[in-house]
Each structure stands twice: as structure tokens, then as C-alpha cells.
Amino acid sequence: MAAGGDHGSPDSYRSPLASRYASPEMCFVFSDRYKFRTWRQLWLWLAEAEQTLGLPITDEQIQEMKSNLENIDFKMAAEEEKRLRHDVMAHVHTFGHCCPKAAGIIHLGATSCYVGDNTDLIILRNALDLLLPKLARVISRLADFAKERASLPTLGFTHFQPAQLTTVGKRCCLWIQDLCMDLQNLKRVRDDLRFRGVKGTTGTQASFLQLFEGDDHKVEQLDKMVTEKAGFKRAFIITGQTYTRKVDIEVLSVLASLGASVHKICTDIRLLANLKEMEEPFEKQQIGSSAMPYKRNPMRSERCCSLARHLMTLVMDPLQTASVQWFERTLDDSANRRICLAEAFLTADTILNTLQNISEGLVVYPKVIERRIRQELPFMATENIIMAMVKAGGSRQDCHEKIRVLSQQAASVVKQEGGDNDLIERIQVDAYFSPIHSQLDHLLDPSSFTGRASQQVQRFLEEEVYPLLKPYESVMKVKAELCL
């Protein structure tokens, strides 16, 4: 049975990233139509530049190519590739079939990587351009969430054990800070992308030097003109047959890092959902379990974690691919890159769409948070109580021993009897502590235990987050809708 299948058929496997999760716009960027249309555009740009620099290419040939950029006979191309065992030459023939007058000058002087690699770089750039505003929107939604809850005390956790208090907004800023680093890295790697350009079979530009009869300047002009037509500021000066596969490492490393950030955020949300302090959106008709109707599973956060793990592992592909590119190139890269580049971007696209949807509907339960604080705060307040007693004339050592005994009794009630923490009640009825009984409410005010959390939130948002989001103001209103 021949390899390949009808990918629109229910009898043929289709990647869930495309069929179930990723956005239509990201799927289109990695589609065959987008790819092969870009090949034709690159052939047109090459012909236009070659004509401008004096090669015998007519206006009629150029116009014929322009008129057929979208006229792609995919069936013919597939048949040609089956016959020739070469995808680029299959599309040269297919393009030439609908451009008979231009057929002889299509791909003039070029090698397969002229269309293959340059198209990949265009796709990487455009895919990054799709991700950047999506990530900015996630940051914006979380920034709104953090600002609104900047002063809401909550129990902090280290080692997932109760620690000092923080605020809900401050905790959210930990998430935002990681995503801001990801946004900066995505922008950097996007701006650092260079075009492969017009380089020939081993990167020496020998074929173009021959076409222009040894004119170095025209060869350099050709490279520059096509690079500018493709919208790049610069091209690699040095290439082998391909652009260095280190570029793929750079791009997928940034995406993998984004995956790590999203995994951490969504894990926190899942843990908070278990504590009943916070939940992701839950639709009115949504079913959490087929057997347990009360369940409210954090399905979206779980999906993000599941896909983020996949995204983090994909960076190993370009690392290994770059390491086995012998001399000017081997074909070890080809099949692998067809999979890992598309999957990385479709996965990143999915987790950003999902995280935006989550961040637009996060639900906080202040009463649950308050109750958990009441359970733990008495123990945390013991040092403040000791200091207040010393100020009232008591002995630190005597007070410490009193607190120690009462704390152990209260802990026994919590752990052995399943009761509430009654340390404060014990202190309130103990005559030894009568000098500070009137101060206990103040000493137990949760806001006095959150330090500068709310001020940190305000400063972080104003100095770091809002300036970073400013270039994306025009796209901030787009909502994230999930079908599944």
C-alpha cells in the first residue's frame, strides 16, 4: 500500500493539533497551500530580480507567473513527485505547466533550498508574528487579574506546605514575570531571523556568478533584492546548502521555554482548584465526569500541561538535527523538520489560546482563602504575639514557653481530632496574655502579614508589564474561544 493518505478522510490519521486544537490561522501558515504558494512567490521574486539585473526574462513571463501564483494543481504535483521522487522539481514542473512561456526560467540558477529553506524562514517569521500578540493578550488578562487582587491576602506555599502570606495578585505576578520573559525572547528570536537568500547549491553562489558572467556586484544585488522582497532586513552571508540548523534550535528553545512557563502556571491553577481557592472557567453544560456528576475538573489547565510537556520535548529534535548536518548538509534534517517545526508552533498556539481562555474567566473564592488563612495564621502570628507581650512588660522566655504549650495543644486538636485551630481562643482565655487581649485582632490582621506584596504588584505592572504590552494595544480586544 502506498504511503500517505487522504487526510480529510475519517479513515486516515490526522494530527489532533490540526484537527482538534490549533487555530485556523496557525494551521494555514503550515498548510501545503501556504507552503507551495510561497515557493511560487519566491520563484517570481527571483525572476523579477534577475530581470532587473539584466537576464533575458520578459515582462510577459513575469506576468504569467504572477497570474498563476494561486493556480496550484495539487493532484498534478503529487503525481509528479511520485514520478520524480523530488518535491521541488515536482512543483517546478507543475508551475511550468500553467506558465508555459515562463517554464524555462522558473528556478533559474537556484537549488531546492532556495524555495525550501527560504519558505521555512518566512513561515517561522509569520508563525512567530501570530504567537506574539496571543502571548501579549494572556499577559494582559493576567495583569488585569493581578491588579484587581493585588491586596487580597492568601496563604503562600513553599514545598506545598503553608508559608508566609502573600497576595493573590502577587502570586499571579510570578506567572506574568515568566511570560514577559517569554514574550521578550519570542520577539528577540523573531527579529534575529535572517533570510537564507540566493546562495546556490553549497552556499557559494557559483551558479549565479556564472549567470551574471562573473559580476560579483550583481550577485550581491540579486541576494539583497530577493531578501528585501521577502520582507527581511538581512540575509546570511555564510550558508551551506541550507541555512544553519542552529536557527531551528533557537526558535524551538524559546517555544519550549514558553511551554515550561505555561505548565507551571496551569499546575498552580490545578492545585488551587483542589484547594477550592480558584477555578478555571466551567461552562453551564460542561460535564466533569461521566460517573461523578459533582466533579469540576480543571480540564483546560490539564490540557495545557499535557501539550506543554510535548512542546518542551520537541527542542531535542533540532538539537540532534543540527549535530548531524555533515559538511554542507545531509538530508537527516528533512523529514524531522517537516514534523517538529509545525508541531512546535501548533502546540504553542494551542496552549496560548487555551491559557487566554482560562485567564479571561478565572474565578476566585475569597471566603475559602480566608478560612485557610484562619487555619494557619495563628501559628504564624506567634512571633508577633511574643513581641507584643514583651512590649507590655512580659518575659520573652516565659511567653515563648506559654505559646509553645498552647500551640501544641491547638495542633493536637487540628491533627488528632480534625478540629479547627483554636490557638487564639486559648490565648484569649489565658490570664497571662490579658495585657494584649485587646491587640489580638490587630495582630491577626492578614494584611499585616503580606509585606509589600501589593506595592510590588503595582510597581511591576507599571514599570515592566504595561510598557512591554504597549506595541500590542491594537490587538488586545480579541477574545479566545474554545470549541473543545
Results as ranks from 00 to 15, higher is better:
Glu48Cys: 06
Ser261Asp: 05
Asn68Arg: 08
Tyr13Ile: 11
Ser140Arg: 14
Arg137Glu: 07
Arg125Ile: 05
Val138Met: 15
Lys134Asn: 15
Asp73Met: 04
Leu152Ile: 09
Ser301Tyr: 03
Cys173Arg: 01
Tyr34Ala: 12
Gly54Tyr: 03
Pro133Val: 15
Phe460Val: 06
Ala78Phe: 07
Thr111Trp: 01
Cys399Tyr: 01
Val429Arg: 15
Ser261Gln: 00
Arg404Gly: 06
Glu81Gly: 00
Lys367Phe: 05
Gly200Thr: 06
Glu79Asn: 10
Cys173Ile: 03
Arg245Val: 01
Thr38Asp: 00
Thr242Ala: 09
Glu81Ser: 00
Thr382Tyr: 08
Glu343Asn: 13
Phe345Ala: 11
Trp175His: 00
Leu258Ser: 06
Asp144Glu: 14
Ser207Glu: 01
Leu142Tyr: 12
Gln161Ala: 03
Lys391Gly: 14
Gln458Phe: 11
Tyr472Thr: 07
Val405Asp: 12
Ile105Gln: 06
Lys295Asp: 05
Pro435Asp: 07
Gly116Ala: 13
Ala348Gly: 12
Gly393Ala: 05
Phe145His: 10
Leu252Lys: 05
Thr321Gly: 09
Lys284Cys: 13
Leu193Gly: 07
Asp120Asn: 07
Leu128Asp: 03
Gln320Lys: 06
Ile386Gln: 03
Arg196Gln: 13
Leu341Gly: 13
His400Lys: 06
Met26Gly: 00
Thr204Asn: 10
His159Gln: 03
Thr450Phe: 04
Ala388His: 03
Asn118Ser: 03
Gly214Thr: 12
Thr244His: 14
Asp120Ala: 07
Leu132Asp: 12
Leu307Thr: 15
His97Phe: 14
Leu314Ala: 12
Ser412Pro: 06
Cys98Asn: 13
Thr227Arg: 06
Lys224Thr: 10
His91Phe: 05
His442Ala: 13
Glu48Phe: 00
Ser454Val: 15
Arg190Ile: 09
Pro366Thr: 07
Asp422Pro: 10
Leu179Trp: 02
Gly288Ile: 05
Arg245Tyr: 00
Glu50Pro: 00
Tyr365Phe: 10
Glu280Met: 09
Ile176Tyr: 01
Thr38Phe: 10
Thr158Lys: 09
Gln184Ser: 14
Gln456Arg: 04
Met181Val: 09
Asp223Ala: 06
Lys470Met: 13
Arg33Pro: 10
Pro293Val: 04
Val262Phe: 07
Cys27Trp: 09
Trp45Lys: 01
Thr119Cys: 14
Ser454Lys: 14
Met316Cys: 08
Asp59Thr: 11
Gly54Asp: 12
Arg190Met: 12
Val262Ala: 14
Gln356Met: 08
Ala49Gln: 00
Ala308Cys: 14
Val88Cys: 02
Glu425Thr: 15
Tyr294Asn: 06
Met312Ser: 04
Ile358Ala: 14
Val324Gln: 06
Gly54Glu: 11
Phe36Ser: 13
Ile351Lys: 05
Arg137Asp: 08
Ala381Pro: 09
Asn384Cys: 13
Ala47Ser: 08
Val247Pro: 00
Pro162Trp: 12
Thr347Pro: 11
His442Glu: 15
Ala388Lys: 04
